[in-house]
Design a protein around this nucleic acid. Structure first.
Ligand SMILES: [Zn+2]
Ligand SMILES: [Zn+2]
Ligand SMILES: [Zn+2]
Ligand SMILES: [Zn+2]
Lengths: 149, 149
DNA sequence: CCTTGAAGCTACAGTCACTGTAGGGATTAG
DNA sequence: CTAATCCCTACAGTGACTGTAGCTTCAAGG
């Protein structure tokens, strides 16, 4: 009944979802958002449906889902009659990835804490931080092979 | 006393440090490793000093230090008489970054677990995973604004 | 109607730390 | 001598944006 389209500009829709303007354009470019209709002057316009879609994407990204998973979740959300096994599987895989990452980071925290605890704050020649980095056998147990935060 | 240089190829030194050959060349390119001496045919050669330097880099990377921090740690390791405050500060900052990341991921784990626990595994129309992504007010408390794993 | 300033447009480069590929040359064991 | 394995350079691609330059459009005030 409410056909009064309440158009928003890209800046408004971006703010409403906590995204940057460039990010919204990027999502359109890679096909996560449909091409937005434009004003006569070529500026993008967004309605409530588009705003919700953007909010969905940002929420999923905030929970760490990679964009390909978000793409799949959007596709599923567009088919409400399909069974939800696939959506649950994607979320379960994401949970597993988060748990693995947590385990890895707990191990890194342990090693970093140990390094700092053992250092007497003397010269570099006797710095436990430098010594440990030069000799993995000073580490407690961790494998810390995968890199990055 | 041991001047018998025991040269390794790039493949050998990479394997010994758990790195790929391209990664070793990349470290040389960005100046983390000094330019390696070459054979007459132009192939790189590595000695024990270079092997240790590469192992140091990989160990630091394995503990999550960004390359710029590794660069600084290497610079400090080359000056054994300097005080070790700087090295300890870099490690402390890394520890703090790891702790922040852990806190964030624990919150994500909580939300993902909640989503999955509440879903009855019906149609997408009633899938708690999709519902939650569409409506952040179904989340417990977390801000999950920063993205990515 | 005109001006001004904010916001929008495209196109492209840069981030981080690699990884992969194409198209060749070097080295070594048989 | 040949075949297999390694190595070389140079460059493109990854993920998910972010920043910049140089322009155009829009809304509001005078
Ligand atoms: Zn120290
Ligand atoms: Zn270690
Ligand atoms: Zn479900
Ligand atoms: Zn939420």
């Amino acid at each position: 009944m409410d056909k009064t389209e309440n158009w928003m500009t890209i800046g408004q829709v971006a703010r409403s979802a906590g995204a940057k303007v460039q990010t919204v354009r990027y999502y359109e470019e890679i096909g996560l958002l449909p091409p937005a209709p434009r004003t006569a002057g070529g500026q993008r316009l967004y309605d409530e449906v588009a705003r919700k879609r953007l909010a969905f994407i940002r929420h999923a990204r905030g929970l760490g889902f990679p964009l390909e998973a978000v793409r799949e979740l959007l596709r599923l959300a567009d088919h409400p009659e399909a069974p939800c096994d696939e959506a649950d599987l994607i979320a379960a895989r994401q949970l597993e990835a988060v748990e693995q990452r947590i385990a890895q980071l707990l191990s890194l925290r342990h090693e970093l804490g140990r390094m700092l605890d053992h250092c007497q704050g003397d010269r570099v020649a006797r710095c436990r931080v430098i010594e440990t980095l030069a000799d993995h056998s000073l580490c407690a147990e961790a494998e810390h092979l995968g890199a990055g935060l």
